[in-house]
């Protein structure tokens, strides 16, 4: 369930809002649920709200794990 997507923060706006981007499409969302965001962060967006910050190091680790699998087989 729950369609949510990683999008990049382009700009932080007033009233706990932010502009985010995904594949050349921009969207204004609420960041009321996530503190201390910075421009350039990736957030998981669901129904117009950022739910979590995406951790680029963890993402890289998971991708490395996939690649390891590739090397092993």
């Amino acid at each position: 369930m729950c369609l949510a997507l990683p999008a990049r923060v382009l700009e932080l706006l007033a009233d706990e809002q932010a502009m985010v981007e995904l594949g050349g499409v921009t969207k204004q969302i609420s960041v009321a649920l996530v503190d201390d965001l910075a421009v350039g962060d990736y957030v998981i967006v669901h129904v117009g709200f950022a739910l979590a910050r995406l951790d680029p190091e963890e993402a890289a680790k998971t991708l490395a794990l996939f690649a390891e699998m590739a090397a092993a087989s």
Binding site: L5, L22, G23, G24, V25, V45
Partner: peptide, 8 residues
Amino acid sequence: EVAGACEL
């Protein structure tokens, strides 16, 4: 852009 909007 079409792919991105459709994902959203």
